[in-house]
């Protein structure tokens, strides 16, 4: 299993975002660094869910918003490490829709179950494989650092 490291404040911000948007899905980008086979997330950047037609069970981040997020990451010397979203009243497991719509190979997809408005379980999955045709999700170990200096 690969490891995803992130500071407590970022982890809680991601989970809090899901509580704020409940009963709709929240979404955002994870910004960080890749070293020695693991991602370390430094910041989470909130994004709007453009699936306003079905926001309780779908999310989509506008590519134009991602262009700006990538630009900001680059300015900070960081990379897009992956994305997060919530599953309102559904388990923190990837769905067939999550899998079909996942295209960022080598990046992390973090999912938080928000049960009755409260953040419950959070899992992260690394999209592995060399192409769209042989991609798969592998669950990661999430390591939450109490102080950012521990990362």
């Amino acid at each position: 299993m690969s490891i995803l490291r992130l500071p407590r404040a970022v982890y809680e911000a991601i989970r809090g975002h899901g509580e704020e948007t409940f009963p709709h899905e929240c979404c955002g980008a994870l910004i960080g660094r890749f070293a020695e086979g693991s991602w370390t997330v430094i910041a989470a950047i909130r994004a709007g869910n453009t699936r306003t037609d079905s926001a309780h069970n779908r999310y989509r981040i506008a590519p134009a918003e991602l262009v700006k997020i990538e630009r900001e990451a680059r300015r900070q010397g960081l990379d897009v490490a992956g994305f997060y979203h919530s599953h309102p009243d559904h388990p923190a497991q990837w769905s067939s829709t999550d899998f079909a719509e996942a295209h960022w190979l080598g990046c992390c997809y973090m999912i938080t179950e928000v049960a009755a408005g409260k953040a419950a379980v959070t899992h992260s999955f690394l999209l592995v494989g060399g192409s769209e045709e042989d991609k798969r999700f592998e669950q990661q170990i999430i390591q939450v650092a109490e102080e950012s200096g521990e990362l």
């Binding site: 079905s54 999310y59 989509r60 981040i61 991602l66 262009v67 309102p88 829709t97 719509e101």
Partner: peptide, 13 residues
């Protein structure tokens, strides 16, 4: 030019 793979999903199968 920025190349941006799409980002979407959701719990519905």
């Amino acid at each position: 030019l920025s190349i941006i793979p799409s980002i979407a999903g959701g719990w519905t199968n």
